[in-house]
C-alpha cells in the first residue's frame, strides 16, 4: 500500500465522519427551515458548532450499561453499525484517483457490508433485553431482508449497462448518459430501498419513537447512542453517494468545477432530499411497508432487470 493510499483512506475517513457530524446540525437546521423555524443557530456562526457541543455532551453523559443486558453484545453492537457503513465507503470513487479500495467487485462489497449493518440493530436490540428494543430489532431485521433483495436486483440493471461491478467503471460508463435516464426504474427502486437501508423516515420503523420509545437503541446512552446516531448519518451519506455513483454520473460534470466538487454537490442534493422526506412524509404502517416491498417493488425490480437485460441483449445483437 502506498503512502498515497493511506492519505486517501485517512482523508476519506475524516471527510466522511465530519460530513456525518456536520449533517447532524445541517438536518436540524434544514428541518427547522422547512417548519419556518431557525433551528440551532446559537453555537458559533449559524450554529455550526452545535455539533461540537452535542459531541461534548454525548461524551460526558453517563455511559450506562443496563444490568439486565447482555453486556458484551451490548457494547459491540454500536461499533458494528459504524464500521459496516465506513467499510462501504472504501469502494466509492469520489473522483478519479480518490478511492480507498478500487475493488472490481465494489458493488457486491457494498451489498455485503450493508447486510452486515443489520447485525448491529439485531444485536443491539437483543442485548438490551427490553421488549421495545427487541421489537425494533425484529422489525429492522425483517425490513433489511425485504429491501435488500430488490436493492441488489435494482442495481443489476446498472451492472448490465456498465458491464462491471467496479464503481469507478460504472461512473466512467456514464460519460455520455447518466444511468438515471435508462435506468430510471432502477433508480427509483434503489432510492426507496436506500431509504429503508438507512432506516430513515418514512422507513424508520425499527426505532419508531412514537411506538417503541426508541426501538433498538432505547437502552443506549452516551457515546454508544452516539455511534448509532453517527451510523445513521453515515448511512444517509453513503446512500446519497451511491445514488450519485450509480445513477448520476459520480464526479462527472462540466469542467469549470473539479470532479470532486461535482460529486459533493450531487451527493448533497440527495442528502437534502433525504431530509426533505423526513420533514414531509409520515411513517407507513409496518404491514404496508412489508407489502409494498414484496408485492410492488420486488416485481418492479425483476421487471427492470428483465427489460434491461432484454434490451441490452437486443442492442448488442
Amino acid at each position: 500500500m502506498t503512502v498515497m493510499g493511506l492519505v486517501v483512506i485517512a482523508g476519506v475517513l475524516a471527510a466522511v465522519i465530519s460530513c456525518a457530524a456536520f449533517l447532524v446540525w445541517f438536518e436540524r437546521r434544514l428541518l427547522a427551515f422547512f417548519q419556518e423555524r431557525y433551528g440551532p443557530n446559537r453555537v458559533g456562526p449559524f450554529g455550526v458548532f452545535q455539533v461540537v457541543a452535542d459531541i461534548i455532551k454525548l461524551f460526558f453523559k453517563e455511559d450506562w450499561v443496563p444490568p439486565f443486558s447482555d453486556r458484551a453484545v451490548f457494547v459491540i453492537a454500536p461499533v458494528f453499525v459504524v464500521a459496516s457503513v465506513l467499510m462501504s465507503f472504501a469502494v466509492i470513487s469520489f473522483a478519479p484517483g480518490i478511492c480507498a479500495a478500487d475493488l472490481d467487485v465494489g458493488l457486491l462489497f457494498f451489498l455485503a457490508m450493508s447486510s452486515l449493518g443489520v447485525y448491529s440493530i439485531v444485536l443491539g436490540g437483543w442485548a438490551s433485553n427490553n421488549k421495545y428494543s427487541l421489537l425494533g430489532a425484529l422489525r429492522g431485521a425483517a425490513q433489511m431482508i425485504t429491501y435488500e433483495v430488490f436493492m441488489g436486483i435494482s442495481l443489476m440493471g446498472v451492472v448490465i449497462m456498465a458491464d462491471s461491478f467496479n464503481l469507478k467503471k460504472i461512473v466512467e460508463a456514464q460519460e455520455h448518459l447518466w444511468f438515471c435516464v435508462p435506468q430510471f426504474l432502477g433508480f427509483a427502486i434503489f432510492f426507496i430501498a436506500g431509504v429503508a437501508e438507512a432506516r430513515r423516515i418514512p422507513f424508520d420503523l425499527p426505532e419508531a419513537e412514537s411506538e417503541l420509545v426508541a426501538g433498538y437503541h432505547s437502552e443506549f446512552s452516551s457515546m454508544k447512542f452516539g455511534m448509532f446516531f453517527l451510523g445513521e448519518y453515515l448511512g444517509v451519506t453513503l446512500i446519497s453517494s451511491l445514488i450519485v455513483v450509480f445513477f448520476f454520473g459520480g464526479w462527472l460534470g462540466p469542467a469549470f468545477l473539479p470532479p470532486i466538487a461535482w460529486f459533493l454537490i450531487k451527493t448533497f442534493f440527495f442528502i437534502i432530499v433525504f431530509i426533505l422526506m423526513r420533514g414531509s412524509l409520515p411513517r407507513p404502517r409496518y404491514d404496508q411497508l412489508m407489502g409494498y416491498g414484496w408485492k410492488v417493488l420486488l416485481p418492479l425490480a425483476l421487471l427492470n432487470l428483465f427489460v434491461t437485460g432484454a434490451v441490452v441483449l437486443v442492442w448488442q445483437n
Binding site: 434544514l30 427551515f33 422547512f34 417548519q35 419556518e36 426533505l276 420533514g279 414531509s280 412524509l281
Partner: peptide
Amino acid sequence: SMFLVFIHL
C-alpha cells in the same frame, strides 16, 4: 407534499 414542505424554506 414534499414540494409543499420544501417551499416553506
